[in-house]
Amino acid sequence: MFAFDFMRNAFLASTFIAITCGTVGVYVVARNFSFLAHTLSEIGFAGAAFAVWLGIGPLWGMLLFTLLGSISVGELSLHSDQKESSISAISALFTGLGVLFLAISGANSNYATNILFGSIVGVDKQGVIQLVVLSVIVLLMIFSIQRSLNFDSFDHIGAVAHGVKTGLVSVIFLIALAMSVSIGAQIVGSLLVFILLTLPPATANYIGKTIGSMIAWSVFFALIGVWLGLYLGFITNLPVTFFIAVIEVVIYLVTYFTHLIKRSL
């Protein structure tokens, strides 16, 4: 399998993406941002379609849209009473825009499929380098604010009481989240990127009792998903995204029911 260039590229890129999404996801779940992550992936889809229309790389369109989107939606969700419905409205608008950009750019349906469902096996050397660099930037951002981010994400009220600059932490985290959505979408596609951002950390929530152990478990489950998904995709020739989705869901459900059974004993 590793004799093929494209498989080596795919493994390298997806390893970094899994580490990034697994780490960032722990905070997504702790901050109740799962719905926001989902909306951002739809905004990312519109961004990728926009980039196709402009004739630039989809990753850059995604980055542009998710960065703008995460700040505005994040502000909206912090300050609006109508949080869910306003996010739904934005999500609908951007999905519509994505369809429009794809239609007027005249891209074929194959391209749309790649944006929506991922095309990790098509990543070239340059793409891998971009993804690795962006992953490292996201991880550095998270690392540079880890103390405040931990306090704010896991005990917002306590953090405010201790004078943590929660507004600043929130903005930096939203930027990191937007970048994670954009790079994660390169492997599982914009429609399913929230899988990597929510399922491994949600599973880790039932196992870890410290932030460190939760991140470790979350990254571990994300890695199992992408590695096994790539392997199964390679030997069966079925979509990698399908396998990743199924693997993460199975891990989550098994952990969840184990947790339920344990608690009822």
Binding site: Q146, R147, D155, H156, I157, G158, A161, K209, T210, I211
Partner: peptide, 25 residues
């Protein structure tokens, strides 16, 4: 010590980890 906290039944951190939030990671 503020009046309200957002700690629901599914809150994952241990007591020790929660207390340690107010310290370097």
């Amino acid at each position: 010590v503020p009046q309200f906290r957002n700690i629901d039944a599914e809150y994952p951190l241990s007591i020790e980890a929660f207390v340690g939030l107010n310290a370097p990671t």
